[in-house]
């Protein structure tokens, strides 16, 4: 009789659980053994017993939660395999942020890939997604609607640079998630030739340092403190999106509020946030990336963890791929913060 994939991986209240290996993947509450795909807070929580993750992800967790965020850590480089109760676990790049990985589980001839959060386009701050043929592909569906097709990053960065030329007196404040998105925006600006000092919100300084430590060249950065008011004219400031809504922005004269997120594709979302320059840049796969990836890895079965699963299930039905929604509670969407 054919082995059921649920024997290798099944949803439990704390998250996706692997019974033969006795570990969870990205559990949303403290567990004894965890494999963590990437450092975003909803996937990487503090308080687990043993944590296996890439060295980059472990470093991110240490910065966010302190060195003692877990009982013990097991660094696992991309491509390295460890064995847990007969299950081979390999981490493979997911292209989401620095250190992000897909967890590949192989057991008795069956392969399940838990892709975590991922994207397919090139990102100068992390290794590109590697498609792995598998029996079950576990995917996110943050942008699982055909309306979400992210334009090329270079077009969006060009918009920002053009606006800096058109409004040289105004400060362009880019709301960007502090881990991953912020550093990617900075790197993309550098690639586009923007070599001036970029000012950053205090909440991201340590993450910027961490990225630099892993060899991501962010160029000249400075903290966006009040004393530097005059320097902000015509400059780019990167801040967590929530800072744009607080009193923090008052230090900038007549700012242009920008927001880097896949949600900016829909005008009502941008308007609701008072964004003047929406930048459609996301660390999540868009509709085409999701559907192309599924076509590429050709799973026997598709499991959808979180996001807009309804449209993705419809697409799977149209393409004869058996699919189901896991509806895992607790995964948020850092693109919207």
């Amino acid at each position: 009789m054919k082995l059921k994939p649920q024997a290798l991986l099944c949803p439990r209240p704390a998250g996706l659980y692997c019974p033969p290996g006795d570990f969870y993947i990205d559990p949303t509450r403290p567990v004894d053994r965890a494999v963590i795909t990437h450092g975003h807070a909803d996937h990487a929580r503090a308080g687990h017993g043993v944590v296996a993750a890439t060295p980059e992800t472990l470093a991110i967790m240490a910065v966010r939660y302190g060195e003692d965020f877990a009982g013990r850590v097991e660094p696992l480089r991309y491509g390295e395999t460890i064995e847990r109760g007969g299950v081979d676990v390999t981490l493979v790049p997911a292209g989401h942020i620095l250190g992000s990985a897909q967890a590949v589980l192989r057991w008795k001839g069956m392969t399940i890939v838990v892709s975590g959060d991922y994207k397919r386009r090139a990102d100068p701050t992390c290794a590109p997604f590697e498609p792995i043929a598998c029996d079950v592909f576990v995917t996110e569906a943050t942008f699982g609607l055909p309306v979400f097709r992210h334009p090329p990053d270079s077009d969006e960065i060009a918009k920002l640079i053009k606006s800096l030329e058109q409004f040289p007196q105004r400060t362009h404040i880019v709301g960007a998630y502090a881990l991953g998105k912020a550093q990617r925006i900075i790197r993309l600006l550098r690639q586009a030739g923007h070599d001036q000092v970029i000012y950053t919100h205090g909440a991201m300084a340590r993450l910027d340092e961490l990225y630099t430590g892993f060899g991501v060249d962010l160029g000249p950065l400075a903290p966006a403190t009040v004393e530097k008011k005059a320097a902000f004219e015509g400059a780019v400031v990167i801040a967590p999106p929530s800072a744009l809504e607080g009193t923090w922005v008052r230090r900038f004269a007549d700012p242009v509020p920008c927001f880097a997120s896949g949600w900016m594709r829909v005008k009502a979302r941008a308007r609701q946030r008072h964004v003047e320059l929406p930048l459609i840049i996301s660390d999540h796969a868009d509709w085409d990336e999701l559907t192309n990836t599924i076509s590429e890895v050709r799973p026997e079965e598709l499991w959808v963890t979180h996001g807009a699963e309804e449209a993705l299930l419809r697409w799977s039905a149209l393409n004869d791929i058996p699919a189901k929604a896991l509806a895992i509670v607790g995964y948020e969407d850092e693109d919207d913060d």
């Binding site: 609607l145 055909p146 309306v147 829909v266 005008k267 009502a268 449209a311 419809r314 697409w315």
Partner: peptide, 15 residues
């Protein structure tokens, strides 16, 4: 466009 996918999209975007 597949009518179901279009309906889901229109419902989300509203325009």
């Amino acid at each position: 466009i597949d009518p179901q996918l279009f309906a889901l999209s229109y419902d989300y975007v509203g325009d």
